[in-house]
């Protein structure tokens, strides 16, 4: 389990994390969201032991990863821009990783070569951004990590490769119980993949929970009436947000879907529909209640 206890990290006068504590469950796929400069990449670097916490601790099961080779050998960290040894090819880089990562699996690497169509003898610097990212993913996944940390995981990948990556992640979760943390400023990208999501802003972790729990009991109901009832008519429901446009009423309500729809039918709607809100909308609704202007945080 990834754990942080009273984590504080400063860059000069700027505080990146201020006394933050959290846990990320084993086998979870966690989306780390926040605006640019919110500290997503910093958090990944802290987890992977690249950065050292100024105070508090961050690591695996309460053990700090910084300067801990055994823990680091279980972690694969892919930064926002891949790096390879100068003038190296994929084959050379695989030898580099296989020398240093005890769990590097040549068979897995061979299988990944059939998934990612890259020339192992071509210089990596001569490859496109997307190909370089694929190469980096191949190398890291071949180390069969327990913890996969990716910064802007899908950046530079085409639609097909995004799906391949998602499948590989799910495969790792199912077969090895791999924990995955994906940092992104784009919530939509993470929506289908992540079962956990955490929001970072201004040196704090504002939210860290299961996606399902976030979704649980949250419904976006749209209804059209001949005579629109007063808002107070819905006081019996747990309404989080209400928008009225002419005869159209749009509400975000927490509760049982059937009960909510039954409640609406009492007012004889011309049109009635319940749709699942997007991850971004859920964040907006949940956190606006707590007083945060989440739209500004996310964009």
């Amino acid at each position: 389990m990834i754990t942080a206890r009273n984590l504080t990290k400063r860059f000069g006068d700027r505080v990146a994390f201020d006394n933050v504590s959290f846990e990320m469950e084993e086998g979870a796929v966690c989306g780390l969201v926040g605006s640019n400069g919110s500290g997503k990449s910093t958090l990944l670097r802290l987890i992977s032991g690249v950065y050292r916490a100024d105070s508090g601790s961050i690591g695996i099961d309460g053990i700090e990863t910084f300067d801990h080779p055994m823990l680091k050998s279980k972690i694969a960290f892919l930064g926002d821009t891949p790096y390879f040894l100068p003038q190296s090819t994929l084959a050379e880089m695989s030898r580099f990783y296989s020398s240093l990562y005890p769990n590097f699996n040549a068979e897995t690497f061979r299988q990944l070569q059939s998934v990612f169509p890259l020339d192992a003898r071509k210089r990596l610097t001569a490859m496109s951004k997307g190909q370089q990212r694929q190469a980096a993913l191949m190398l890291l996944l071949a180390t069969e990590p327990q913890y996969l940390l990716m910064d802007e995981a899908f950046d530079g990948l085409d639609v097909v490769m995004r799906r391949v990556l998602a499948n590989l992640i799910m495969d790792g979760v199912e077969n090895r119980g791999m924990t995955t943390v994906i940092a992104s400023h784009n919530l939509r990208e993470l929506e289908d993949l992540c079962d956990h999501v955490a929001l970072i802003h201004d040196g704090k972790m504002l939210f860290n929970d299961e996606t399902e729990r976030l979704k649980g009991g949250l419904h976006k109901v749209q209804a059209a009436f001949r005579g629109v009832p007063e808002e107070s008519a819905f006081d019996g429901l747990n309404v989080l947000k209400c928008d009225r446009t002419g005869s159209l009423l749009q509400m975000v309500i927490r509760g049982d879907e059937e009960e909510i729809l039954e409640y609406f039918k009492r007012f004889d709607p011309v049109f009635l529909e319940s749709v699942a809100p997007s991850l971004e909308e859920m964040f907006v609704y949940e956190l606006e209640v707590t007083g945060y202007d989440v739209k500004n945080i996310l964009h």
Binding site: G49, D80, Y83
Partner: peptide, 16 residues
């Protein structure tokens, strides 16, 4: 001297 190279080297399973 480069962040992306540092990400790779300092994440390697080696002590400093």
């Amino acid at each position: 001297y480069t962040k992306r190279a540092g990400d790779v080297f300092f994440a390697l399973p080696l002590t400093r």
